[in-house]
Design a protein around this nucleic acid. Structure first.
Length: 848
RNA sequence: GCCCGGGUGGCGAAAUCGGUAGACGCAAAGGACUUAAAAUCCUUCGACGCAAGUCAUGCGGGUUCGAGUCCCGCCCCGGGCACCA
């Protein structure tokens, strides 16, 4: 034995080699095919978690694979450095967010290097760096000029005690996370970016994103939510005002029996002047959240305004209700209601004794009653003179025409997508480059960057930047905007800045045209809509500034599944849950291995199982990758995360599996370096030709699996090869096959476990650098067979297996099948009616 | 509530186009080596059955010579829902 596998030493040596050789420095070279591989950059929260390790291992495997295939690879890394947790840390520990963030970055960078990821660190960026954010400030100024950025009122969570705006995450059961005070909705003036101007293009381009999972494209399609409908104006009884609404079901308009408006709607506000009970209702609506999930699941409540709307077609009066499920900010703040044909309206009408008027009936006489619930199918109109007898499409057109002819409405395409609210009332973010003039006008700041003051300790109350006159008040008396950008703003264009990280004269330069679009983007499925939609939008904004040449930023997308683990908790007297790390819990299982109960190791008392969830701080179910790296080495951790699940599925953590991965690398090590292999019990049994067949068959599968990014079965294939080589033993006669097999295994494993393969490649004298080795190819000769095995089925059930010559014709295969003893037994006296033959695989005899 | 996924042995999983269900691992059991343990190596390992075989891919139907894979209807679990990132 030369020496044992010592990951620490060989990993440090391999990393020193890559550093010295500048192996991962990316240089523009138009003569070579480029490959830009990008993993979503991390928020520097403190230390890497398993989700990061998984994400960056997948990205690194793809980057190294493409490099070994000969591509000119760019794989950069950086930091999504602005965000709420830095402010929380500042509140808790009294550290400035900038200091906390920068020390986290330094630590996490060390961890990434320890894992051996092949990044070009010369392109590193942090979004909190003014040299980075000045360019998004510049772009925002351009958007203001183009009318793509505007101010409007919108709703926020307001903590009345801390006098501050809260993120949704900081609202717990309707109360402020620090103050415990009931949170109110408050409308404030905010900045928006007109993503809706690009809604149609963002939707249409999804069809061309063939390298994206269909699942993500479907989610974005639904999120954008294009609908074709009709807008129309209801009158207001006793007034000249109009109430505009939009509907995708104009065919039901003759069934409208009431109209609902938001509590903040001017009509409701006006009616409240004379109705104290309505004031109380509006007040009640101010509490509670405004997220879609909350609105759709809360109890639907309403209050009549004592005011009627006039039906646009019949002129008939219908009551107007204020309702808690209608939001002022979305659409017109008013909806028409058809209880007979909409389930939510049906329930509301039941509750408040509003009539239901059925105007749609089934075309084929199938049941369409509305006694037990709304009839929501499209059908034939009735009680809808002059539109009786029309179907949905006919009615849609007839009613739209009717409204258009009279100036009361018409066809309208609507999007569910809303404009992007980009301003946040927080400190640790990029300042909006806006100046409020003395005349009340706003303009874009021209001296960039607008620097965020650093070394500030926030305390969680009020608005930090508003409290800093040195920042907010200019010498001439004008004031700066004190809102900062949504952190999605920074993460929407970082992929492009990596191409031109040091450009100080523009947002991007010509290098971006070489590298973009990103060939492979890798990140969590939880970003399927927001981040990935904003980044596509931002890319189009940059394209329209002439900064990039392509239409879409990411050609191929891999959405990795989450890393999940068991959760355990105990409730205290107030019903609050305290979470315990799975490592602190002893689990009892039944004889089948199923989970029975858990006890805390510390006190032996029971803890409750809380399900299997995404590893998170809040559920305290994380596994620290650093412990594993220290114990097993980076290659083992990388191999384990690749082997345990395919990249897109969620990965359930299991400590014992890591041991298995480590064991496999030791096996590879011993196979490659241990000259005394034949002294073991194994070996000497396998014919070299058979071994070559197995190795090349496994290689063919592994090459296929690499292309489709199914790395878990790439590893399986390598394990199979190692098992085969192990059985081969070692003597002169098999040395050629052994060496060929080892060479294949090392190269297939190189992207996944780069350090140990780098070491063994050199040690075995294959070459100086496995990264530069030619990618293995299948030898067709090794796969040639003289005879083939066919499965024989009788009526679809396997009844036997036969060996036939590889060149046997259909007739010969059939007669061999019929000749099999067991097959004959199952056919018995019956007649063979049909024979199905799948070449090289299977014969099915259909008998009666 | 809405949109999108997922459900296969004790566990993670595999099955490229509808063609042998469970590759490759983990755990477990038995054995070899060892004074012993660890490590390593060998063997077994879906359920029932002595066996032949039967059953089995969340549940219920359907299409097909043949269904984990396609269709219809359910159940359960997870992700997202616009201020967590």
């Amino acid at each position: 034995m030369p020496h044992d596998y010592d990951p620490r030493a060989i990993e440090a040596a391999a990393q020193a080699y890559w550093e010295e050789a500048q192996s991962f420095k990316a240089v523009e070279d138009p003569s070579r095919e480029k490959f830009y591989c990008l993993s979503m950059f991390p928020y520097p929260s403190g230390k890497l978690h398993m989700g990061h390790v998984r994400n960056y291992t997948i990205g690194d495997v793809i980057a190294r694979y493409q490099r070994m295939r000969g591509k000119n690879v760019l794989q950069p890394m950086g930091w999504d450095a602005f965000g709420l947790p830095a402010e929380n840390a500042a509140i808790q520990h009294g550290i400035p967010p900038s200091q906390w963030t920068r020390s986290n970055i330094a630590y996490m960078k060390g961890q990434l290097n320890r894992l051996g990821f092949g990044y070009d660190w010369d392109r590193e960026l942090a979004t909190c760096d003014p040299d980075y954010y000045r360019w998004e400030q510049w772009l925002f100024g351009r958007l203001m000029e183009k009318g793509l950025a505007y101010r409007a009122k919108s709703m926020v969570n307001w903590d009345p005690v801390d006098q501050t705006v809260l993120a949704n995450e900081q609202v717990i059961d309707g109360k402020g996370w620090r103050s415990g005070a009931p949170v109110e909705k408050r409308e404030i003036e905010q900045w928006f970016v007109r993503i809706t101007a690009y809604a149609q293009e963002l939707l249409d381009a999804l069809d061309g994103l063939e390298g994206w999972p269909e699942q993500v494209r479907a989610m974005q399609r639904n999120w954008i939510g294009r609908s074709e409908g009709v807008h129309m104006d209801f009158g207001i009884q006793g007034s000249d005002d109009k109430l505009g609404i939009y509907t995708t079901r104009p065919d039901t308009v003759m069934g409208v029996t009431y109209v609902a408006v938001a509590a903040e709607h001017p009509l409701a506000q006006r009616a409240a002047a004379t109705d104290p009970a309505l004031v109380a209702f509006i007040e009640e609506c101010r509490l509670g959240g405004f997220s879609e999930a909350e609105i759709e699941t809360m109890e639907k409540k309403g209050y009549p305004l004592g005011l009627n709307a006039l039906h646009p077609i019949t002129g008939a009066p219908v009551p107007i209700f204020a309702a808690n499920f209608v939001l002022m900010g979305y659409g017109t703040g008013a909806v028409m209601a058809v209880p007979a044909h909409d389930q939510r309206d049906w329930e509301f009408a039941e509750k408040y004794g509003i009539p239901k008027r059925q105007v749609i009936f089934s075309a084929d006489g199938s049941p369409c009653g509305i006694e037990a619930g709304a009839y929501v199918e499209k059908g034939i109109l009735g009680h809808s003179d002059p539109f009786d007898g029309l179907d949905f499409a006919q009615a849609f057109n007839a009613i739209a025409d009717w409204l258009e002819a009279r100036g009361k409405g018409g066809r309208q395409v609507n999007f569910r997508l809303r404009d992007w609210g980009v301003s946040r009332q927080r400190y640790w973010g990029c300042p909006l480059p806006v100046i409020h003039g003395a005349d009340g006008q706003v303009r874009a700041a021209t001296e960039l960057p607008v620097r965020l003051p650093e070394d500030v300790i926030v305390d969680g109350s009020g608005s930090p930047l508003k409290k800093m006159p040195a920042f907010s008040v200019l010498p001439n008396g004008e004031t700066r905007e004190t809102d900062t950008f949504d952190t999605f703003f920074e993460s929407s264009w970082y992929f492009a800045r990596y191409c031109s990280p040091d450009c100080d004269t523009a947002m991007l330069d010509e290098r971006a045209r070489y590298w973009l679009p990103v060939d492979q983007y890798v990140g969590g499925i939880e970003h399927a809509v927001l981040h990935l939609l904003y980044a596509r939008f931002f890319h189009k904004l940059m394209r329209d500034e002439g900064l990039v040449a392509c239409d879409e930023p990411f050609t191929n997308l891999l959405t990795q599944g989450m890393v999940v683990a068991e959760t355990w908790y105990r409730e205290d007297g107030q019903g609050r849950k305290h979470w315990f790390n799975p490592a602190e819990v002893e689990v009892e299982r039944d004889e089948r291995g199923r989970l029975l109960r858990g006890r805390l190791t510390a006190d032996g008392q029971p803890v409750t199982f809380g399900g299997i969830e995404k590893m998170s701080k809040s559920k305290n179910n994380g596994v620290d990758p650093q412990t594993l790296i220290d114990r097993f080495g980076a290659d083992t951790v990388r191999l384990y995360t690749m082997f345990t699940s395919p990249p897109e599925k969620s990965l359930e953590w299991n400590d014992e599996g890591v041991e298995g991965a480590s064991r496999f690398l030791k096996r590879v090590w011993a196979l490659a370096l241990d000259d005394n292999r034949e002294s073991g019990d194994a070996g000497g049994g396998l014919d070299p030709l058979a071994a070559r067949y197995e190795i090349h068959a496994a290689l063919r599968k592994a090459l296929f699996d690499y292309e489709r990014h199914q790395f878990n079965t790439v590893v399986s294939g390598c394990m199979t090869m190692v098992n085969v080589l192990h059985k081969l033993g070692r003597d002169e006669a098999v040395e050629g096959v052994m060496r060929e097999g080892l060479g294949i295994v090392l190269r297939l494993l190189a992207p996944i476990a780069p350090h140990v393969t780098h070491h063994l490649w050199r040690e075995l004298g294959f070459g100086a650098d496995i990264l530069r080795a030619p990618w293995p190819v299948v030898d067709a000769e090794a796969l040639r067979r003289d005879s083939l095995e066919y499965v024989v089925q009788v009526n679809g059930k396997v009844r036997g297996k036969i060996q036939v010559p590889a060149d046997a014709d259909r007739q010969a295969v059939e007669s061999a099948a019929l000749d099999n003893d067991n097959v004959r037994r199952f056919i018995g006296e019956a007649q063979v009616r049909k024979v199905i033959l799948v070449p090289n695989k299977l014969v099915n005899l259909v008998v009666q």
